[in-house]
Amino acid sequence: VVAAYQLKFRYILIISAMFMGIEELFLHWDIYTHHWWKTVYTGALMTIGFSISKIWYVWLTERYMTFVHYATFFLGMLAITSTIMFMLLAYFHNNWFYTGWFASATHDSVNATMIYVCVVTVLLVWSVAKEFFVGAAMIIAGLRIVDILLIYYGVLLVSITTSLVLFTLLQAGAFILSVMLQNFIMKNCYGTSKKDVAFPAKNY
């Protein structure tokens, strides 16, 4: 909303303050806990983030730069794929990483999961960007081999026997969403689904 309607800075401050208020309310209700974080960090980073989003939106809709497009594409898919992975972890407890990087098992698994998700997202976005759809199937199959190796070496623990099948289906679904998101961005921001039309040669 801030970016699409190019809201003025005072509205950004008001929205950031609202989120700070929500955070303090959750703390008061004891349904949310700070460890090293402070509410002021939320307000400061949201203010910065909203300000950047206004500039980014203009770049995305007016500059037609491939870097901006694919960064947006990657971040959008990262949000989707990470949500899927963490929902699996939260609801089914069917995958857990043990790397030994952190003393806390939860921190260990969360950080390893994010690295895993980033790698998966990069590969899926790359295959869609290159229109290498056969490669996407090869990537998903290759990830299952990686999963099996991680399980063998005790880095990845899966609690149900169908977890790898579930991962495959979800990543195939994420690939389909990647294609849809790519087309959505292209058509709605540039008015075309053709990359050579949307991005002049000088911007590649």
Rank of each mutant, 00 (worst) to 15 (best):
K194R: 15
D196L: 08
Y190S: 14
S16E: 01
T42Y: 08
K38C: 04
S159T: 13
R144H: 11
N188E: 13
D108Q: 09
L25M: 08
L169H: 15
I151Q: 03
V117K: 01
L181I: 13
E24V: 08
W56E: 04
C118W: 04
Y153A: 02
I12R: 15
I185K: 03
Y11E: 04
L149Y: 14
K195C: 01
A129M: 05
N203F: 15
N94T: 06
L170N: 06
V146N: 02
V2K: 08
V134I: 13
F175P: 05
A105P: 12
Y64F: 15
Y98M: 04
S53P: 02
A136I: 11
S104D: 10
A141G: 07
F92W: 09
D196R: 10
V110D: 09
Y64T: 03
V40R: 12
V119W: 00
Y98P: 00
I84R: 01
L13Q: 08
V68N: 07
I140T: 02
L164K: 15
H107N: 11
L89W: 13
W126S: 04
L181P: 05
I80C: 07
H34Y: 12
V179T: 08
Q171M: 07
V158F: 01
Y116R: 07
Y152C: 05
V197C: 05
W37R: 14
L149I: 15
T61M: 09
D196G: 01
G43E: 02
S163E: 15
R63T: 11
V134L: 13
Y153P: 05
A172Q: 06
T61Q: 10
V58T: 13
L89Y: 14
L157G: 02
F175W: 07
V125A: 01
A141E: 08
A90K: 15
